[in-house]
Design a protein around this nucleic acid. Structure first.
Lengths: 174, 174
DNA sequence: GTCTATACAACGATAGAC
DNA sequence: GTCTATCGTTGTATAGAC
């Protein structure tokens, strides 16, 4: 529900209905909505990071690993389970929730920067490529692809953006 | 307020307080919150589209015009006034609000596709560049840059993503 | 056209029985 | 541990005076 509707729109009542438990039951296990959301968001974020690691740690050249990251299967119209939180005021005001966002993005960034730096060092990628910049560009294409798709109500813009990015990364090969 | 807090978090009460008018006054001028938001969102979207047109219609090569689009001044940590709406359930459920999102993104896309197609045709850009793909990639970098910046609580990831995109676009020049 | 007062539902959370 | 009942607050909107 956090993924599909976001933090604010996922009300305790709706959560309890969906879980088919009574009104008060959630407060026995969780201090409140924020704590429950922290658990759910952490689970979503960790699952995502694990998949990202699998894609990026694969064998092959730097370009192939970046392609693998770009080509990961994603529920495009559902949006990114982590990235979609960044525009919710309540999430930004929650230290613990915001920290999950920051940490999750930083982990992916670190992995991508390492892949690119490795590729440059091995002369698979052009020497003038800046690893930090390319890493953020690639992440931005994915996050922005979600936005374009949701604004269009159609996954095609996401796939076009990703294919365009793959073509550009090929040009960055040495 | 729509820009800063989004649709759901911008409550009529808060709006009326900020406007320094009494509780009922807004309902004389607008049918409800949705109608007021439509007016505000349309104003934000039109202002943005006008600036995009200025950047993309400028003289210079296709690459220069794409660079101009990427380098437009943006309030990075505030997020995109249009793009930030895509994760709000109430906005997606509102036909009129959603239509503004769709239309605004489509207008920018059309302009960018034309610039890229023109560049390919003039042999300023490599012949294997797909205009629709590059256009969506460039838009995605901007939208995703906002997301990265907000998740980090820092504008730097946005600027890195955009600089990385500019570097890739230079590689796409013929 | 703007105001104050108020309606009614939903929100997040708690009480207290079992 | 889970339930039903309920609390106080806020969200969206309306009523009716001026």
């Amino acid at each position: 529900m956090l993924w599909d509707r976001g933090y604010t729109a996922a009300s305790p009542r709706a959560i309890l209905d969906r879980a088919e438990v009574g009104q008060g039951s959630m407060y026995y296990h969780f201090a409140g909505k924020e704590t429950l959301a922290l658990t759910a968001l952490t689970a979503n974020a960790d699952a995502l990071t694990a998949r990202v690691e699998t894609a990026l740690r694969g064998r092959g050249s730097a370009a192939r690993r970046i392609h693998a990251f770009l080509s990961m299967q994603r529920e495009v119209l559902r949006g990114c389970p982590v990235g979609r939180m960044v525009s919710e005021p309540d999430v930004l005001e929650s230290t613990v929730l915001f920290e999950v966002l920051t940490r999750t993005f930083q982990q992916t960034r670190d992995l991508l920067v390492a892949v690119v730096a490795d590729g440059v060092q091995r002369r698979e990628l052009r020497p003038d490529i800046d690893p930090a910049e390319l890493a953020d560009t690639v992440m931005a294409v994915v996050q922005g692809g979600y936005v374009l798709a949701r604004a269009a109500g159609d996954a095609k813009p996401y796939h076009r953006a990703v294919r365009g990015a793959r073509a550009l990364v090929r040009l960055a090969e040495a």
